[in-house]
């Protein structure tokens, strides 16, 4: 029951995260900024619109947003993205989680290629490049968690009586935070606010989506942020050891919005990396996770 409540809360609250980030960035820029509910307004507006499809595109383009969101929803089912356990839990759900995110990316990339636009092809190419480097970092981090907790299921890892602490925790958190930024296309990997197609990664892949399709994509992006943010938050905050530990939804919410604020601060203080430098940062995430594995 609590798991269903968490699931619903994630569905409802996920669009707040981009809002919070934008608000923080506005604050740093000395503006008042848009409402934190802006994405909700956008979604309502987009869902009420018609659609324009590129004449070059076909069913793969139409499948993209739909399958991508479906994969993310399934991923939400195995991620304890709230104060409690997850809806479904079994040995190896961490693997399924990572590959569901990969599925979501796969269909998005294909939808981008279906438009035949060279810019979207470029974005697609960068997306698969960076995610291929982020994947090992994510899996190495998972290996650290599994090793310490003695289990490879999110529920058991996050409710373990033997959580990751000390130096390894710091290292893994750093690695996962980098993966979080990379996978969600935030600065320093990708600038969601840029207006130059040449410099975009994620945004350029969805240039041709419109109306309800774009609503599904924007919502999916927010959900993905919630999902990967949940990994960081559940790990960073003391949710108590053992199954009887403190399972506080309030703590989780505080954590995830703190993460959004942190992301906003990072975005305000940093510039986007040169594309050639991005791989080095992703490799260092792998290195951090590797070091954590060695010392844990």
């Amino acid at each position: 029951m609590t798991a269903i409540a968490d699931f619903a809360a994630a569905l409802l609250l996920a669009p707040l995260l981009p809002g919070v980030i934008n608000r923080v960035k506005a604050f740093f820029a000395g503006r008042r900024g848009q409402s934190v509910f802006q994405l909700y307004y956008d979604l309502r507006k987009l869902l009420a619109k018609g659609a324009v499809y590129s004449s070059a595109s076909g069913f793969v383009f139409r499948l993209g947003p739909v399958a991508s969101l479906a994969a993310l929803l399934a991923a939400l089912a195995v991620m304890p993205a709230g104060g409690h356990g997850s809806l479904a839990s079994f040995d190896g759900d961490i693997i399924l989680f990572a590959y569901l995110l990969a599925l979501s990316r796969f269909v998005t990339v294909l939808a981008a290629l279906d438009t035949g636009s060279s810019f979207e092809g470029m974005g697609a190419s960068r997306e698969v490049f960076f995610s291929a480097l982020a994947e090992p970092a994510f899996f190495l981090s998972l290996a650290v968690l599994a090793k310490k907790a003695g289990a490879f299921s999110f529920n058991l890892i996050f409710l373990s009586a033997n959580p990751v602490t000390g130096t390894p925790l710091l290292l893994v958190l750093a690695a996962l935070f980098i993966v979080f930024l990379a996978e969600n296309c935030r600065i320093p990997f990708d600038d969601p606010n840029t207006h130059l197609e040449l410099t975009m990664i994620h945004e350029v892949m969805v240039l041709d989506h419109s109306g309800p399709d774009f609503a599904l994509i924007s919502y999916g992006a927010a959900l993905k942020m919630w999902l990967l943010g949940a990994v960081v938050v559940r790990l960073a905050l003391p949710f108590g050891g053992g199954t009887g530990g403190a399972q506080s939804p309030a703590l989780f919410l505080a954590g995830i919005f703190a993460l959004a604020i942190a992301t906003g601060i990072v975005e305000s203080c940093m510039a986007r990396l040169r594309l050639l430098k991005v791989p080095a940062l992703l490799l260092s995430a792998s290195m951090l996770a590797f070091a954590a594995f060695m010392v844990s």
């Binding site: 018609g50 659609a51 324009v52 004449s55 035949g116 636009s117 810019f119 979207e120 240039l207």
Partner: peptide, 16 residues
């Protein structure tokens, strides 16, 4: 269902 009855157009790909 959402798109039923709404304008669904076909246009060239956005060439930036």
């Amino acid at each position: 269902r959402l798109l039923a009855g709404r304008a669904v157009a076909s246009a060239p790909t956005w060439g930036c």
